[in-house]
């Protein structure tokens, strides 16, 4: 990572821990804040991907993947924004779904990295497995709302700490001059 990426990762980690704290303290408004933050992030990310595709990546071999990614991310962002007015139970289910999906992607990426001989696949794998386990535990306790919220917040804090640690870690990257 370069310095800018480390700073962004560090800020993201701190933000995630802060959001967990907010959700525990003011659960009624906490959900709205998390949904709003997630929605804004996804919509901006989707628009950015689409802009990059239409100005640059449409000429690139394999560029269509960026188009699909942009459309999917934008759709998720708009869908997330529409969740403000439904019962919190369903919002929690949605957040769990994203959490578990993210965990599954981390597991897939870790196994890929292991095949390519990278030395850092174990950390990524453990993060993915923990994300999936947290998601499953939340589902098990979904009827006991407070428990589910605390488990979800624990997951957010864990992810936040991992991001902070990743930003402080020296990464060996292959660069070919």
């Amino acid at each position: 990572m370069n310095k800018r990426q480390r700073v962004l990762n560090l800020l993201m980690g701190v933000f995630m821990m802060f959001m967990a704290f907010v959700l525990v303290c003011i659960p009624e408004d906490g959900y709205e804040l998390i949904i709003a933050a997630l929605s804004i992030g996804l919509v901006c990310g989707g628009i950015r991907s689409l802009y990059f595709y239409f100005t640059m990546a449409r000429h690139m071999v394999g560029g269509k993947r960026l188009l699909y990614r942009g459309v999917i991310v934008l759709d998720f962002g708009l869908f997330t924004a529409s969740l403000s007015y439904i019962p919190h139970f369903y919002i929690l289910l949605y957040l769990l779904g994203i959490h578990m999906f993210s965990g599954a992607m981390d597991i897939w990426s870790a196994l890929d990295a292991k095949k390519l001989g990278s030395d850092h696949w174990r950390l990524k794998l453990s993060r993915g497995v923990i994300d999936v386990v947290i998601g499953i535990l939340c589902l098990v306790f979904i009827r006991q709302r407070d428990t589910a919220v605390y488990i979800y917040c624990a997951g957010l804090v864990y992810n936040g700490i991992m991001r902070v640690l990743a930003s402080l870690r020296r990464t060996a990257m292959v660069y070919i001059p």
Partner: peptide, 24 residues
């Protein structure tokens, strides 16, 4: 492969390259 410590193995055709990064 993305293994910075291992040299290329030309005999078996195993080479290293830089990691795919979506950032332009």
């Amino acid at each position: 492969r993305h293994s910075p410590m291992q040299p290329d193995d030309v005999e078996n055709g195993v080479y290293s390259n830089s990691i795919f990064q979506t950032g332009e």
